[in-house]
Write a protein that binds this DNA or RNA. Structure first.
Lengths: 194, 194, 194, 194
DNA sequence: AATGAATGAGGTTTCATTCAT
DNA sequence: CATGAATGAAACCTCATTCAT
């Protein structure tokens, strides 16, 4: 990615995350990058293309790390824990990117359908581990897909937390707490309540 | 709420959920309601007002149910379980409304800041119960706020699940699974891994 | 056609004829109609739609008159003479419209292909009469299609004449001269030269 | 004309003929020539200059041939016949060029006024012969100018014919038919109808 | 000579809002 | 109450032109 394209890339992430896809204007993106609108169109065919480029690049980074874990010679639970850590580190490293994803995960516009499709594929990786863990008896049988989404939801929770919570956070604390919550929930003896 | 206003209300929820706030046009909202654009302005001052009205009404319904629970004479865990059920039932009953909230929870526009503020207040209710549960030793000490968000995140997970998953779901199954996940996570003996 | 739409229609004909399809701007059309750009889009979906509307309406008027002639109980030559008169009267009555057609008859853009197709259909009407006249021996056998185009070309000639020639013309003189030219050409004894 | 300039020249003719002056983009012209936009500006000052260059070169070729005829020691009718043949041969040899001229013959933009002016001068050559032919009694008296345009219109007819008619044509057939039409029209005994 | 990048003026289109009826 | 027409600000996008290399 050449210098100007990278400038646009970064600027667009900022603007999209602040204003959403529709709310972001090409003028804003250009101005924020210290460029002129026309220049954006030299490097990208359209606003939509900038968006797709961002999504592609961002998810690639996350996906790559996950695949690395998947190829490790460790058990499914260890993999899930690692993925949890990756997800959260990613979230706090690329907060703006994440907000973009979150805001565009809903709705029926083409770009939104596409994005959901990509996220679905990502969750598949998680699902694989949960299924394996069930098969070898490490976690109780259940709706694999649903549980995979709940696992992924930890990301979502943290994103909302980050979005609403203003004070500085400590990433390690959050990772630890989230992993614990994912593994044990509130840590309640379920039989006492259900 | 008179008949036409209600028509607009329902139409706007549908359109906002499909296209987001910015993507939704007054024309779309009107057409979907079988009305004409001008008519909307008889019942609402602006697009923003329609949005606010929807958010207010929607969250009111949720909030009311939660307050009812809060006033019950039961323990904090029981309350949390009930709230979990309420949240999910609400989510599946008002899916479109929920998508609107989810899509507008990010970004720095006024309407988005406002919405986050309201959600923050809602999460406070959850926080109260978690704090109490900690105080009476029902759950282990931890970052109350973060855990409250993780609890709320179950909602988020389910919303994404609903959004991505196409097949018909069984609400009771989801509620049961989610409550279990919330109480026990993946049900892993944490000491073996951390 | 309501008042404003008619205003736009007339304005667009003027602007298109002056600047061609691409050279004409929506701002020009609006300003010339005493309106604001946005108003154009209330009545027409796009610039292309305005263009199509103009072509449709214009050719309709011409076509209607020709069909009337075709239905008369007269010989093919008489019909051709009448059509020649109609064409020229139309040309001088709707000069601007004609210039639009002429300027858009070339090129490979969609709108141009469409227009050629429509003109082709119009020329068919002429062709019918030429074929009949040949069959009954009123004119010599020859390439019917080509001759039909040459007949239609009289229109073209006059349009160029009108376009280049600035002085006031007398319509009846032109009609008479053109009919003569069409029937007899330069009036040369062909055998002396070919 | 050096190689690259010639490349641009040919490419521009093709693109202008396909899209008209306004519709043609410098990018299209460059790409079609296997060059890059910037290169065009090394050889031509502007788009308009490319256009003028094309018109100049094209008309020069036609004009030269006509002047050659004018200098011959033959009668005016013979000259007209030769010019007719030249015109048609030129039209079918430089179809794209001709389409450019035809599409730019209308409208009030500078380039269009200029072009009309040049065509007017060309028609003057025809006019001279018609006037002479009238003076020596070879053709009947009439509006010299108008008849000259009608003569020139045969070109126009053929251009439209070429543009609309898809099948392969035989140039000699067209030339013969057009000359006949020019000399004798439909070959009708005018007194029977007027 | 040729190129690729950048520019900015200006084009088409969208759309929330206003208003007379 | 409801409507249809009109508006204008602002959005996305195009493209001729310039310029450093």
């Amino acid at each position: 990615m050449n210098k100007t394209k990278n400038l646009i890339f970064k600027s667009a992430i900022k603007i999209f995350s602040e204003s959403g896809y529709r709310g972001a204007t090409m003028d804003d993106i250009a101005a924020n990058a210290g460029l002129v609108k026309g220049t954006l169109y030299y490097h990208f065919k359209s606003k939509e293309e900038i968006f797709n480029f961002i999504v592609e690049e961002g998810l690639q980074i996350l996906q790559n790390q996950v695949i690395e874990v998947q190829n490790m010679n460790i058990g499914p639970i260890e993999k899930l824990i690692k993925i949890c850590r990756i997800q959260l580190t990613f979230l706090y490293g690329y907060t703006d990117f994440f907000k973009i994803v979150m805001s565009q995960l809903w709705g029926t516009e083409h770009r939104q359908n596409e994005l959901r499709h990509k996220i679905r594929k990502y969750i598949n990786e998680i699902e694989i581990n949960i299924r394996t863990a069930m098969e070898i008896g490490e976690i109780k049988k259940g709706d694999v897909e649903l549980i995979a989404f709940q696992f992924f939801g930890s990301l979502c929770s943290s994103a909302i937390y980050e979005s609403i919570h203003i004070e500085k956070i400590n990433l390690e604390d959050i990772i630890e707490s989230t992993i614990k919550f994912t593994l044990n929930g509130l840590g309640i003896d379920i039989n006492r309540y259900i």
